[in-house]
Amino acid sequence: MTPSRSTPVADRAPARPAPAGAGAPVGRPSFWTTRRRDRLTGYLFIAPQLAGTVLFVLIPLGLVFWYSLHEWNVLADEFTFTGGENYAKLAADPNLPGVLRATGLFSAGLVVLNLALALFLAVLLNQKLRGTTFFRVLFFSPVVVSLVAWTIVWQFMLQDNGGVNGLLATVGVDGPNWLRSDGTAMISVIVVQVFKNVGLNMVLFLAALQGVPQELYEAARVDGASRWRTFWRITMPLISPTVLLTSIITVVGSLQVFAQIAILTQGGPGTSTTVLVYYLYQQAFQFHAFGYGSTLSVLLFAIVLALTVVQWQLRKRWVHHEN
């Protein structure tokens, strides 16, 4: 970080052999110019990740696309090429608008609530207060608890005569049947998921907040800026890279949430909490329609891709500094 640290490193450097692939001695220009060497190093560095992506992501994805052009009944062992038939079915699927609506609601609700709560908790725990370490651990603890155990406890608490309504009753409120009413099932699923994972984002935000130089706050106070204004004008811009990172992780994660829905609502009441991944899972694994399930996978992939591209573009406008 400081020159004094890099000097000894430099002293030892020439003793080491030249980088991979370079037979030529260091320094004198040969075919292996610095630039060429750099390029080669770049390719070698990304090679494991790239090979893994091709093998474990792109090829399977290509296969999924291939399956989506077929009708594939696993039990009957039928695998018939049907061309775009599954895509025609997708366009005409009467369930699809509802599924997309539920997916949008779920993701939007989850991202907004998760990021807002994570930021709120991080700001609270960033105060100079005794015992913040203790609270930090408490808020983080659900992250390491088994998802299935976590969800089952909440299912139990959210039932009509469960803990949540018991608590509400003590203040004279007659709570709804959370998981079984149209209006509340979705929000319940979202909240359960937020409590489970908000700790991770909280920790990332906390780290970012602690990286904001105190002098900036001092300066703002001298200028007489309100707390609110300081937060929006100083804190937010400075932690924007973290906001971007967490929002991408959370959006992508929200589109992949499945076990919680399977346990809490099984997509109901009606189909109000049937999100795309759950629908895909039903079609492929429960209804044995792997071809159509694959078609839904392709759709899901396209949606996630589009969303990420949008966020990635927005980064240029929002994020404070990235070249």
């Binding site: 990304i46 895909l280 792997f290 899901l300 996630v304």
Partner: peptide
């Protein structure tokens, strides 16, 4: 190439589990 790698971020495991299993 970075975008290619990023596709990995976008795929729920339910989507690729069948082809991966076959591999």
């Amino acid at each position: 190439l970075f975008l290619v790698v990023l596709t990995g971020l976008l795929i729920p495991s339910e989507v690729t589990i069948v082809p991966l299993f076959r591999m």
